[in-house]
Amino acid sequence: MRTSQRSNTLLGLATVAVLLISGSTAVFAGAPVPILPEAVKSAVEGERSCVRPAQEMRRSHMDDLKHQRDDTVHEGVRTKRFALKECIDCHVTNDANGEKVSIKSREHFCNACHSYTGVTLDCWDCHASQPGGGQ
């Protein structure tokens, strides 16, 4: 009984130590989050807004884009609202030298979150990831 109590205490202390060590590496640094650039223009004139509310864009932009792809490729219907080119024109990112960054950089609007969550994309195998063309 005695030994098992002592080993339980030890185990408890070890757990607390592990938790503290795993946390202490960045206790004061805080959780890393993706850094997103501000959009350079607005979808609605005079308002700071995207084509849909931000909360919805965060959750289901991929569905809009896929739907747009099917409309365009299968039906031949080309609309501007959910066009990839429009996304890129607003959400352009400039690096420290004022140069536009490509999808390869983690500063890129899309890549900031996509690399954060481990979601890979094949949009940019064909499409340009910067306004005016260019990878």
Binding site: G23, T25, A31, V33, R58, R59, C113, T117
Partner: peptide, 23 residues
């Protein structure tokens, strides 16, 4: 079916692991 905001979720979880409760 119904996607969620996984970026906020990850920020919350990384926050728990680093004792940063701002997310």
């Amino acid at each position: 079916v119904a996607h969620i905001d996984i970026v906020s979720l990850k920020a919350f979880l990384l926050g728990l692991m680093r004792f940063d409760w701002s997310h």
